[in-house]
């Protein structure tokens, strides 16, 4: 278990590099939603950097900002997971697998830092802090366990974005969620195929129904599903409302 932003491994470096080059103001201008941001969270100071808050309960807030925080929370979880996967590779990780998992780690870090920058620009008082993760139940030395957890995270991410789409009120955000969810689905497919190569596991009956539809799951159910992997208690009763 470790704090995402305070760990002594790569994640520390990754966070320091986060979003420094991003022009936050332009996101604010383009998004055009600054005025609609609700103060759902306890106010933070303008220059507050997420991270050092004590572990406790974090509420994602309401409306579109709640959805963005929800996505940011899930991307934090995924990024922290893959950082750990690459820092402590499972026994027998092939070069090809390491390349794939490193790519995925980088995508998730990019997603995480993108949401951090976007929320910092659009809702500086409502952005959630860095979350503390709990991977104590995952044996990072076991290929089957790590890839199984990766599949769970990716499939959960896909279902979460699919379920959140209809909660989004700003068209630009809906498109952004769409741009990310298909990459998560590509991850889910590749991880599924690593687990059971050349089978139906890249889009199997565990996730795709008899109409050829992927899962779409509401935030409350998703937050309950990821609860074991977060030390921080995350609530989201008003996401999208």
């Amino acid at each position: 278990m470790e704090r995402i932003s305070n760990s002594k491994n790569n994640s520390d470096k990754e966070d320091q590099k986060a979003s420094s080059t991003v022009d936050r103001r332009s996101f604010l201008m383009s998004a055009g939603i600054a005025a609609s941001v609700g103060a759902a969270m306890v106010a933070c100071s303008k220059d507050h950097e997420p991270g050092p808050d004590p572990v406790g309960t974090v509420d994602l807030g309401s409306g579109d900002v709640g959805v963005l925080n929800y996505a940011y929370a899930l991307e934090q979880l995924e990024a922290a997971f893959y950082i750990q996967v690459i820092d402590t590779p499972y026994d027998g990780m092939s070069a090809a697998e390491k390349t794939i998992l490193t790519d995925i780690r980088d995508h998730e870090i990019i997603h995480r830092d993108f949401f951090k920058a976007a929320l910092t620009a659009a809702a500086p008082t409502a952005i959630i802090p860095s979350l503390e993760v709990n991977f104590s139940g995952i044996n990072f030395k076991s290929r089957d366990i790590v890839l199984g957890a990766a599949k769970l995270f990716e499939d959960t991410g896909v279902a979460a974005y699919n379920g959140a789409g209809k909660l989004i009120k700003t068209a630009d955000y809906l498109v952004l969620a769409g741009k990310i969810v298909s990459v998560e689905a590509r991850h889910a497919s590749v991880i599924g195929d690593l687990l059971k190569p050349n089978t139906e596991n890249f889009a199997g009956g565990d996730v795709v129904d008899n109409n050829g539809l992927d899962k779409a799951i509401d935030p409350a159910t998703i937050l309950a599903a990821v609860k074991p992997y977060l030390k921080t208690n995350v609530t989201g009763a008003n996401v999208g409302k």
């Binding site: 789409g165 890249f202 539809l213 992927d214 899962k215």
Partner: peptide
């Protein structure tokens, strides 16, 4: 549409 969209992405990766 989103549920179809992500299935197409799974196919694409494979």
């Amino acid at each position: 549409a989103l549920q179809v969209h992500s299935v197409e992405a799974r196919h694409a990766a494979q």
